[in-house]
């Protein structure tokens, strides 16, 4: 288990737990539900923003805004 902001480029991970709050609810609505597998495609210059691939599409988000999500590496 690790928290979302520890993810590095080219890692593959699965969502294990989600702390319920409005920000994580929106992430779930974007498809990041418990059990969803995704890969980290890119980390933006200067850090925080990352691009992940899930459910057949590319989503960019800020690590700090996905703080309530725990993942496990696969």
């Amino acid at each position: 288990m690790m928290s979302f902001d520890q993810l590095q480029r080219n890692m593959r991970a699965r969502v294990s737990t989600i702390e319920p709050n409005p920000a994580t609810l929106r992430l779930q609505e974007m498809g990041l539900t418990v059990g969803t597998e995704f890969s980290v495609a890119k980390v933006a210059p200067f850090g925080d923003t990352i691009e992940i691939r899930l459910r057949g599409y590319s989503l960019c988000l800020r690590k700090c805004e996905a703080a309530g999500i725990e993942v496990e590496l696969i």
Binding site: T49, S58, R62, E65
Partner: peptide, 9 residues
């Protein structure tokens, strides 16, 4: 504030 989410089409 809404979280910054961006789809790369």
């Amino acid at each position: 504030r809404i979280p910054f989410l961006l789809e790369l089409p």
